[in-house]
Design a binder for these strands. Sequence first.
DNA 1: CCGCAAATGGACTGTATAGTCCATTCCATT
DNA 2: AATGGAATGGACTATACAGTCCATTTGCGG
Lengths: 215, 215
Amino acid sequence: MSRQTSTALQLTPSQLLSARARILEAAAEMFRTHGYDVSMDVIATAANVSKQTLYNQFGSKEDLFKAMIADRAAVMRAPLSASALERHPRDMLADIARQYYQHACGEHEIGYYRMMIGASQQFPEIGRAFYEAGPKQMVEALAQWIAREERLGRLDTGGDPVLAAEHYLSLVSGQIETRGLLGLWAEMSPAEMERRARFCADIFMRAFGPHRLMA
Amino acid sequence: MSRQTSTALQLTPSQLLSARARILEAAAEMFRTHGYDVSMDVIATAANVSKQTLYNQFGSKEDLFKAMIADRAAVMRAPLSASALERHPRDMLADIARQYYQHACGEHEIGYYRMMIGASQQFPEIGRAFYEAGPKQMVEALAQWIAREERLGRLDTGGDPVLAAEHYLSLVSGQIETRGLLGLWAEMSPAEMERRARFCADIFMRAFGPHRLMA
DNA sequence: CCGCAAATGGACTGTATAGTCCATTCCATT
DNA sequence: AATGGAATGGACTATACAGTCCATTTGCGG
C-alpha cells in the first residue's frame, strides 16, 4: 500500500537502482512485441523481478501499462526541436524528413505506435495523451515555423500553415508508416532515405514556395 | 468436420439464408468495437446463433476472425475504380480525395483498419493480405493513371509515378487517419471535406503539374 | 553481528473463456 | 404425418491468467 516510488528514487547501492526502471523497460518490450495480452508473469520474468515486486511497484496491469506509456511518451518527444531553425526552408524540411526516417519509423518505434493504436481502443485516454504528446506537438511546431517563414515571404501556404504542416508530415510518413503498421517490413537504405527526404522537401517547396504563379 | 459452406449457399427458405452471413456480420461488428478479445459467446449472441452453430461454420476463433477479415477486405475494395478516368487531372485527384473522405475515413472504416493493425501483430499474414487488397491496389491504380497522364504531358513526376501516387494518398489520408486510429474523433463537414479535397489536388498539381519552372 | 524492510518464489483463489458434448427441438421435404 | 439433418441451449472440461498470501531469504544501516 505504501508508495514504494520514493524508495526506488533514493540511492540504493547495487544495480537495484533500477528496480522500477527494469520493470518499465521489460514491460515496454513485452507489450511492444506481444501486445496488451502478455501475462504479468512473463513481464515479471523478463524484468528479472518477482511478481510481487511488480505488484508493489504498480498496482495493476492497467497501471503498469499506463505508466509504461507515459514513460515511452517522454522518450519519444519530438526530436525536431529548435536545432537550427534558421536554415533555408528546403533544408529544414528535408531535415525533418531525415530525422523521421532515421529515428521514428524503425521497427521498434512502429511497434510502439501499433501498441498505442491498439490500446486506444481499450483506454481512450491513452490515444489522446499520445497524440498530444507526439503528433500534435510536431504539427504545431512545424506550423509555427511555417507561419514565421510565411511572414518573411519565404513560404506561401495561402493562410493555413496548420494544414500545410499536417500535409508535410503526412507526406513524410506516408506509406512507410502504413506498411509498417501492417507488419510489412522493408529496411530503408540511407540512399533511399535521402532520396525520399529530398523528394518531400521538393514537393512542399513547389506547392508552397514563394512562386505564386497559380491563381 | 464436414464443410457446411455449401449448405449455406444452397437455397434455404426463410431468413436462414444468412446463417453464416449473420455470423460474419456480427463478428465484424464485435471485433471492430471490442477488439480480438470479444468472447465467442458474445459473438454468438450478437449473431442470434448458438455457439455450436458458430463452431460448425467456423472451426475456431482464429478461423472466424480470418474469414471475417477476408469478407471485409472484399467489401472494402477500392471505390476509385475506372469511373471517368478522362477528367482533368485536378478534378480526378480531387475526386479521389472526396471518395476517401466520404467513404473510407468514417468511424467504422477506421475501426476496421485499427483492427487489422492489431491483428497483423498476432497474424502477420493478415496484415499482408489486407495491404495487398487495399492500399497497394490504390497506389498501383493511381500510379498507372499518373504514368498515363505523364505520357500525355499533363503531369510531370520526374519519372517516379509510384512515389507520387503514394504521396498523394498520404496527403489525402494524412492526420485524419492518424487521429482516427488513436481514437480522436472529429466529424468532418461536407464543406471541410471539399476544402481539403481541393487543397490536396492543388498541392499535387503545383508539385507535379506540367509547369516545370524549378530545376 | 543484528534487525528490518524489501524482495523472493511459489502456492493459491477466482474468474473468464475457448472449445466440446448431447439431449432436445425445429423445420423442410416427402 | 414421418423423417432426418441442422440448430439449439446449456451444462461441462480444461486452461490461462490477474491478483493475493505468506513463509523464507537477502542485504543494507546501525
